[in-house]
């Protein structure tokens, strides 16, 4: 999974049926000091995250398909947890 920050949300009324009722958030991966920041992407919220939260993002389709309960859903990334703390040794 990716450690990321929730930086925004996406409102979309006309969308593929499997996204119905799902909250879409914009997440941006965090990085170690000195690394180049990555671009943001969209993830289905499954952990009731809010903007500004530090979250765990799973970006693999099969796991997210299991999460939405549709084995043929065109879904990729999902927020699966809200992080309390991280510790990294140098």
């Amino acid at each position: 999974m990716i450690i990321a920050k929730v930086v925004g949300n996406v409102v979309s009324t006309i969308k593929h049926s499997c996204y119905a009722g799902r909250k879409l958030m914009i997440v941006r991966p965090m990085h170690l000091p000195g690394d180049k920041p990555d671009d943001d992407f969209v993830a289905i919220d499954a952990a009731h995250a809010g903007i500004g939260d530090t979250v765990l993002v799973c970006s693999e389709g099969n796991a997210t398909r299991a999460l939405v309960g549709n084995p043929n859903a065109p879904v990729r990334s999902s927020i699966v947890g809200i992080i309390d703390s991280v510790s990294i040794i140098r």
């Binding site: 930086v7 949300n9 979309s12």
Partner: peptide, 27 residues
């Protein structure tokens, strides 16, 4: 590549600390 949704609004806050320091960090 497939388009699966038309976006009404997509807002993002800008000044977010993305750096994960060494050691312990609490959120």
């Amino acid at each position: 590549l497939a388009i699966v949704g038309i976006v009404d609004t997509a807002e993002a806050i800008q000044d977010v600390e993305l750096e994960l320091p060494f050691g312990e960090s609490f959120f």
